[in-house]
């Protein structure tokens, strides 16, 4: 379990996170939603250790991030997989080399063992014939799948995804969503996803947190998001006519 308590972060005197507290459970797809500038990315970067919070506690299965020395932090990071918004694949490496990279750095395995693992994760993300391609030769959806494959190749305990659907068509976005959900359940990992995509939120968001101006405004599931009267949720999630109508229909049906 990841426990976040009273997380506070500011940049040049401007507070971005104002005391966010929450928990993330194993095997559950957790989603952070909110408008641009609400602090989602900063929150995620604090979790993975790319930003150091000004105050507050982040606890990974009993290990307080702030109290870990550099070596322990590095070990913790080896248990973290991250899917970046733009993929963040290494341009000069092939798909196979990109995925193999964490194994080369941290696993004491022979080349054939590493290759087996790479082929296994590539198969898992349905990308079996792209081993020798470079990231520039792949479509956006394929790059995201490679990024997911790289994130899970070390069998992480924690998976963080920053806008995994940005720039993807609806079909591909659904494929990526389902893939993340399947992986989360299959390997019982703690997954935290930053997203703007309401389809994803409704589809796979087992636990949803809405951030507004650096404050946690609402927390609930994708079922509860339909019935909540919270103004911030209603204004953000149902800002489009389509979603508003879907919600009204759902509420009418459940009454």
């Amino acid at each position: 379990m990841i426990e976040v308590t009273d997380l506070y972060k500011e940049f040049k005197g401007i507070p971005v996170l104002k005391g966010v507290s929450t928990t993330f459970e194993k095997g559950v797809t957790n989603m952070i939603i909110g408008q641009s500038g609400s602090g989602k990315t900063v929150f995620l970067k604090c979790l993975v250790g790319l930003h150091v919070p000004d105050s507050g506690i982040i606890c990974f299965d009993g290990r307080k991030q702030k109290e870990l020395d550099i070596k322990e932090q590095r070990l913790l990071r080896q248990e973290i997989g991250m899917v970046f918004q733009g993929g963040a694949l290494y341009d000069s490496l092939t798909v196979e080399e990109n995925i193999m990279f964490p194994l080369k750095m941290f696993a004491d395995q022979s080349f054939s063992e590493r290759m087996d693992r790479v082929n296994f994760v590539l198969k898992r993300v349905n990308l079996e014939n792209a081993n020798k391609k470079f990231p520039a030769e792949l479509s956006g959806g394929m790059q995201k799948r490679v990024s997911i494959a790289r994130a899970i190749v070390m069998n992480p305990k924690y998976l963080f995804c920053d806008e995994p659907n940005s720039g993807l068509d609806p079909n591909t976005a659904t494929v990526i969503d389902n893939l993340i959900k399947e992986i989360t359940e299959e390997y019982q990992i703690i997954t935290v996803i930053n997203s703007h995509d309401m389809n994803s939120v409704m589809e796979i968001g087992e636990k949803i947190i809405l951030l507004k101006d650096g404050v946690k405004e609402w927390e609930g599931s994708n079922k509860e998001i339909f019935i909540t009267e919270n103004e911030a949720v209603v204004n953000f999630v149902y800002s489009s006519n389509l979603f508003r109508k879907v919600r009204e229909a759902y509420l009418k049906e459940t009454k």
């Binding site: 790319l50 990071r77 080896q78 973290i80 341009d91 941290f106």
Partner: peptide, 17 residues
């Protein structure tokens, strides 16, 4: 610089490198 702006350096750091 390109690695920095495309988050490739962040990816290295997250891996513990």
């Amino acid at each position: 610089g390109t690695m920095r702006v495309t988050e490739q350096i962040d990816a290295l750091e997250v891996m513990g490198i």
